[in-house]
């Protein structure tokens, strides 16, 4: 087995895992009951999914500068994603939107 074969299969597996987390995040967006729980699903699952996709792409990269670039993009998406998440949650709390709760037993 050559490195190209291993990297090719490895990256395909990583894409599949990444796609799974994007899918799970989207299911959470549809199923979860309010804005706060939906933010949990989108922020965390998409960040993780992108991490797998980026790692899969890094295995196929032709030079180390492309690898650095890919991880830099992931880092920027993590920071902006978490910041956007805070801004949405903050605006929702500020407008008095109460979080959904399970009925207390």
């Amino acid at each position: 087995m050559t490195w190209e074969t291993i990297a090719g299969w490895g990256s395909t597996a990583l894409f599949a895992v990444g796609a799974f987390f994007f899918f799970a995040g989207s299911v959470g967006l549809v199923r979860f009951p309010d804005v706060y729980t939906r933010l949990h699903a989108l922020t965390k699952a998409d960040n993780l999914g992108l991490g797998f996709v980026v790692t899969g792409l890094a295995l196929r990269a032709e030079s180390w500068i492309v690898v650095l670039k890919l991880y830099l993009i992931w880092l920027i998406v993590i920071v902006t994603g978490a910041t956007a998440c805070y801004l949405v949650a903050n605006a929702a709390r500020g407008s008095g939107l109460e979080p959904w709760t399970r009925e207390r037993r």
Binding site: F32, A41, K44, A45, P99
Partner: peptide, 24 residues
């Protein structure tokens, strides 16, 4: 921890019972 965070939320989203007990 962020890996566990993604895994945890994926499990809750895909589980038929959708285990959630949110609070602030």
């Amino acid at each position: 921890q962020s890996f566990l965070g993604g895994l945890d939320v994926a499990r809750r989203a895909l589980s038929p019972a959708m285990p959630l007990d949110p609070a602030c």
